[in-house]
Write a protein that binds this DNA or RNA. Structure first.
Length: 445
DNA sequence: GTAGGGTTAG
């Protein structure tokens, strides 16, 4: 009886965000059951205390406390947010071992989402197909997964299948479906579904949906129409709405529209380095060197610095993290040797390093130094380590904290070809599946 | 015999 009362109190503290008090009470409890541990685990997870959550889970394991579906779902969700595939797989194994398969849609959906987010989209599909009572969240997890991986066709096919099975789409579904239409350039279909969303499904467009429409039209080159969407929005456009239009300006080298968008973004989100990088790229492509310099100066004055690029790869359950030109890794010698070798070979296939879009923070460096640093971008170091360390033919999964640069994108396509490897790069927005010289994003990003 | 979990665009 005592334990239940205590559990309720721990949960109450957690739901008010008073983690310290919850923890204090939890630690003082003489008797604890699964629910007690879950209460505090959920508290940690909600508070974004990832390391603490994992430690607690380990303690639970060591103390031989029974897990239930909630414990598993919470920890799987955590793996997803950390992009930790190997950890996630281990826990999936535990789910199976403990007989929790088919015990809860929530847990199974969490697994689908984890596999998709960690780059294992085929595995996500296998788990998805085994979910007995798929609900809208399960379908959304899988459709979104496909969309994020650049598999738009699969996303749309699944959307059709979902409807045939009598599941009603919701606002989340439409975000992914609109994105899939945008990626495949199906403008008419995208427009049609944005109308049908309200008329047939009574789902009201939120700012996020408008951002998708801006992206859909903007990427297709209909920049004026995209702008009109923003102007007609009944709600205040978000930074991301303007961001979508800025992205479209980059794709279509539209300097005039960029100026218009830039002014809005300077007001709304002046400290975001990503916007400045995009702007600089647009001016560079147009050969407007004075404006490129202006952007640099503006960043200096406002104290905005481009985030340093970081890439990481999971090898034997451990994360290996790289900065550009970093020489910290114990296998540095081998990594650089492999990289030099690869660069030579892809140059043989016609690769020419493109240093045009490099945005320097402060000092000027020579063309040669620029090229040298480009060839050692963090994702290339991570890929190189993957090639050395992972079993032959196995998929290489690399994660990056920024959008991948177009030169690395070109180089990785060629590297996938000459090494005959499936290379997956996650770059904050989406997954790029490089296979046989091509990328699943279709060069759309 | 508690109360808790999974999906969101560029």
């Amino acid at each position: 009886m005592h334990v239940i009362l205590h559990n309720v109190m721990v949960s109450a503290f957690v739901s008010c965000g008073r983690i310290d008090e919850a923890k204090h009470l939890f630690e003082q409890m003489k008797e604890r059951n699964t629910a007690s541990w879950n209460a505090i685990l959920v508290g940690y997870a909600k508070g974004g205390l990832k390391v603490e959550s994992f430690n607690l889970f380990r303690e639970m394991h060591e103390a031989d406390v029974e897990f239930d579906a909630l414990t598993m779902a919470t920890i799987i969700n955590l793996c997803a947010s950390l992009l930790a595939l190997e950890h996630g797989e281990k826990i999936h194994g535990l789910v199976i071992k403990k007989g929790h398969v088919n015990s809860s849609v929530v847990l199974e959906t969490a697994l689908v989402d984890m596999y998709a987010k960690c780059g294992a989209i085929e595995k996500a599909r296998i788990v998805f197909d085994m979910v007995n009572d798929k609900n809208i969240v399960s379908w959304n997890a899988m459709i979104t997964g496909y969309s994020k991986h650049g598999y738009s066709k699969e996303a749309l096919i699944l959307y059709e299948k979902m409807q045939r099975e009598g599941i009603y789409p919701n606002e989340v579904t439409f975000l992914s479906v609109l994105a899939a239409y945008s990626h495949t350039g199906l403008i008419e279909e995208g427009l049609r579904i944005s109308i049908s969303m309200l008329e047939d499904y009574e789902v009201e467009a939120k700012a996020e949906h408008d951002s998708c429409m801006v992206d859909l039209l903007g990427h297709a080159g209909l920049l004026e129409d995209a702008k009109e969407v923003i102007e007609k929005m009944p709600i205040e456009p978000q930074v991301s709405t303007w961001g979508a239009l800025l992205g479209a300006c980059r794709v279509h080298n539209d300097v005039d529209m960029e100026r218009f968008v830039a002014n809005r973004l300077f007001e709304l989100d002046p400290q975001n380095p990503g916007h400045y990088v995009l702007m600089s790229n647009i001016y560079t492509a147009a050969g407007r060197w004075k404006e490129v310099e202006d952007i640099r100066q503006m960043m200096k004055i406002k104290g905005v610095r481009k985030d340093p690029g970081i890439s990481w790869i999971e090898i034997n359950n451990e994360l290996q993290i790289f900065h550009a030109v970093s020489k910290m890794h114990p296998q540095t010698e081998e990594i650089y040797c492999t990289l030099r070798h690869l660069t030579l070979r892809i140059k043989g296939l016609g690769y020419i390093p493109d240093t045009t879009f490099i945005l320097q923070n402060v000092e000027d460096i020579t063309k040669e130094e620029e090229e040298e640093s480009l060839l050692q971008h963090s994702e290339r170091l991570a890929i190189s380590l993957g090639l050395i360390s992972l079993p032959e033919k196995s998929t290489i999964r690399v994660f990056k904290n920024l959008q991948t640069c177009s030169d690395c994108h070109t180089a990785t396509k060629l590297i996938s070809k000459i090494t005959d490897r499936h290379i997956i790069v996650w770059d904050t927005n989406r997954f790029h599946h490089f296979e046989n010289g091509e990328c699943s994003c279709g060069d759309y990003w």
